[in-house]
Amino acid sequence: MKRVVLQPSGLGFDAEPEDDLLGAATRAGIAVPAACRNGVCELCSGRLLAGTAVNTRNQQKIPISEPLMLCRSRALTDLELEIDAVMAAGANQPRKFQAKVAD
């Protein structure tokens, strides 16, 4: 198991060797912006600050200071990533809205 710490929030989570980073963060209750889960939307983009990660598409290691997509990256060592706009579980309480579906 690898430890992943997100900066500047300081939030962290554990990732199993077979986990993509987005899935591991989601299981830990950390909300990372994402839409497509295959790297096309680039919403889950971050920057590798420390550690070794691999791109699951081409199995190449991601160099330090390079951008990575959490949905298609795995941790080979403990990681430190820079990614803005993340929230921990409970940081944003769910709200209920009433809606009427017209069509």
Results as ranks from 00 to 15, higher is better:
50 A>P: 00
15 A>W: 00
72 R>Y: 02
16 E>Q: 14
19 D>I: 09
97 F>M: 12
86 V>M: 04
76 L>P: 01
43 L>P: 00
86 V>P: 01
41 C>Y: 03
35 A>L: 15
37 R>N: 12
58 N>P: 04
91 A>P: 00
83 I>A: 12
22 L>C: 07
43 L>D: 12
40 V>N: 12
15 A>H: 01
10 G>Q: 06
6 L>T: 03
59 Q>W: 07
12 G>C: 08
97 F>L: 15
48 L>V: 07
82 E>D: 12
80 E>C: 04
58 N>R: 05
8 P>N: 08
75 A>S: 06
27 R>Q: 11
27 R>G: 06
28 A>F: 06
84 D>F: 09
53 A>P: 05
34 A>M: 11
28 A>S: 11
56 T>C: 14
9 S>K: 07
50 A>I: 00
91 A>L: 03
90 G>R: 09
44 C>G: 05
63 P>N: 10
4 V>N: 00
92 N>S: 13
19 D>W: 07
71 C>M: 04
96 K>Y: 10
61 K>G: 07
16 E>H: 12
74 R>L: 01
61 K>T: 15
46 G>Q: 04
73 S>P: 00
71 C>G: 05
18 E>R: 13
5 V>D: 01
25 A>K: 03
34 A>V: 13
74 R>D: 00
85 A>M: 04
20 D>F: 01
39 G>S: 06
73 S>C: 08
96 K>H: 12
46 G>S: 13
82 E>K: 06
39 G>E: 02
53 A>T: 08
81 L>H: 01
52 T>C: 06
30 I>K: 02
99 A>P: 02
24 A>E: 01
18 E>N: 10
28 A>I: 07
10 G>I: 09
8 P>K: 09
2 K>T: 14
16 E>N: 11
93 Q>T: 12
4 V>M: 04
47 R>M: 12
11 L>Q: 09
59 Q>I: 00
84 D>P: 00
4 V>W: 01
54 V>S: 05
87 M>C: 11
26 T>K: 09
20 D>T: 08
32 V>R: 03
37 R>P: 00
57 R>T: 08
49 L>P: 02
75 A>L: 06
54 V>I: 14
3 R>C: 06
78 D>I: 05
91 A>C: 05
25 A>W: 04
34 A>D: 04
52 T>F: 01
42 E>P: 00
35 A>D: 10
23 G>M: 05
93 Q>G: 02
32 V>N: 02
54 V>R: 13
42 E>L: 12
80 E>L: 00
103 D>V: 11
102 A>M: 14
59 Q>A: 13
91 A>F: 07
79 L>A: 08
61 K>R: 15
64 I>V: 15
12 G>L: 04
74 R>A: 13
29 G>D: 08
28 A>C: 06
98 Q>W: 09
36 C>E: 09
69 M>A: 06
60 Q>P: 00
94 P>Q: 08
35 A>M: 13
3 R>E: 13
2 K>D: 03
39 G>H: 03
13 F>W: 10
100 K>D: 05
